Simulated assay, not measured.
Amino acid sequence: MTTPSPTHTTDVAIIGAGPAGLFAAFECGMLKLGCVLIDALDEIGGQCAALYPEKPIYDIPAHPAIEGGALIEALDRQIAPFDVPRLLGRRVERLEGTRGSFRLGTTKGDVIEARAVIIAAGAGAFGPNRPPLEGLEAFEATGSVQYFVRRRADFAGRDVLIAGGGDSAVDWALSLREVARSVKLVHRRDRFRAAPESLRQLDEAVSRGEVEKIIGYQLHGLHGTNGALAGVDLATLDGTIRHVACDHLLPFFGLATDLGPIAQWGLDTMRGTIPVTPSTCESSLPGIFAVGDVATYPGKLKLILQGFTEGAMAAHAIHPIVHPDTALHFEYSTSKGVPAG
């Protein structure tokens, strides 16, 4: 793997090395556009690697199910022929210039000179929405309370309480029932915001006694000593308290996100996202593109596969910026193969 120098000159700077950023790098490589990947995390993969490497993903074409970590490994292998440099563990703080000539600066002093920029920053800087519970920090420090599941094996033979009503809560309830001693799912109402197929599987798991649903309750208090969780108090709106014995609490209340310095670069933004032209994924600033969850436009679906499509469209729109005098004759990959890096 090429190690970038402090000053790096390339065709395309890709900010974000999650699934959308990695596939954008592949599409750039297929068009013989050089690129460099930059990410604030110390590893590639974005949320897939940091938050749910062992969580199955069911809507990747040709993969009935694939874990987040395996998807990232496959995307990494896909760009291997292009020897794409990575600047990891640093954040892009500064971006200046115009279409065809941008200069980026990172928190570690790197300078990247690029003809175009693709922002694939996902949710930006992200962290969990934490429940307002007394003594929470002590249980977080020991791992009794966790917001992301990196290894299912950590919950083998344990009693797990999951709180939340979205895809993460439902998906992990279904996944951890296979290894945990018991799984309980608590939500303030009997209406979940998860995929219909996941809800069907949840109903079946509940009917078989594999998962217990606790409806109409919210987290109220934690019990345990020295950071070891012994149980959680749940409360209804009218103050009825129910105690649930458990070893682990997994609150899935979404992510608090922040675009960080990106919001100061003069781009149009909308509720933490970047509006783009749907056909090219170009932002309000010419030469700067956005793909994946950070991009928005009418009809946008926050799916990994849509981020893949956006990466392809952005790469094709960038080609005339980098090669203004060369016509791009699109060919299928089955015809042209993978060009040399």
Rank of each mutant, 00 (worst) to 15 (best):
I119C: 04
P19R: 09
C35K: 04
S144W: 12
D76E: 05
D11T: 06
V206S: 01
R177T: 12
S279Y: 02
T309F: 15
H323A: 08
P131M: 09
R242V: 14
T280F: 02
G292A: 06
M1W: 03
R200F: 11
E134K: 14
P261T: 13
G18Y: 04
I318E: 00
D258N: 14
M270P: 10
G34K: 13
R181C: 04
P132T: 09
P81T: 11
L51C: 10
R99K: 10
P275K: 08
P132M: 14
D293Q: 13
R200H: 10
H248N: 04
F253H: 06
G105C: 04
P251F: 14
I241D: 06
E137G: 08
P128H: 09
G165H: 01
E310L: 06
D325Y: 07
P261Y: 02
F26I: 05
L259V: 10
G307A: 11
N129I: 07
R90M: 12
N129M: 09
E134R: 14
D247M: 13
F139E: 04
V244I: 14
R158C: 13
F253D: 00
E204G: 05
L87I: 15
I60D: 13
G29F: 03
T309Y: 02
D258Y: 04
I57H: 05
E67T: 09
F252R: 05
L267E: 07
T326A: 14
A17Q: 12
A263K: 10
L176G: 11
G292I: 00
Q146E: 06
V170F: 00
L328R: 00
A295Y: 00
A120P: 13
R99M: 10
E212L: 08
G34R: 12
A173S: 14
S182P: 01
K302W: 01
T273W: 01
C35G: 13
R90W: 02
R158S: 14
D258L: 11
A295P: 01
A70Q: 14
S333D: 08
P131Q: 09
K302H: 04
G266N: 01
A62N: 08
L305Y: 12
A156R: 08
C35I: 02
G135L: 05
G166H: 06
L133V: 03
K108T: 08
P339Q: 08
L95Y: 00
V338S: 03
G164H: 05
L249Q: 10
G21P: 15
E96M: 08
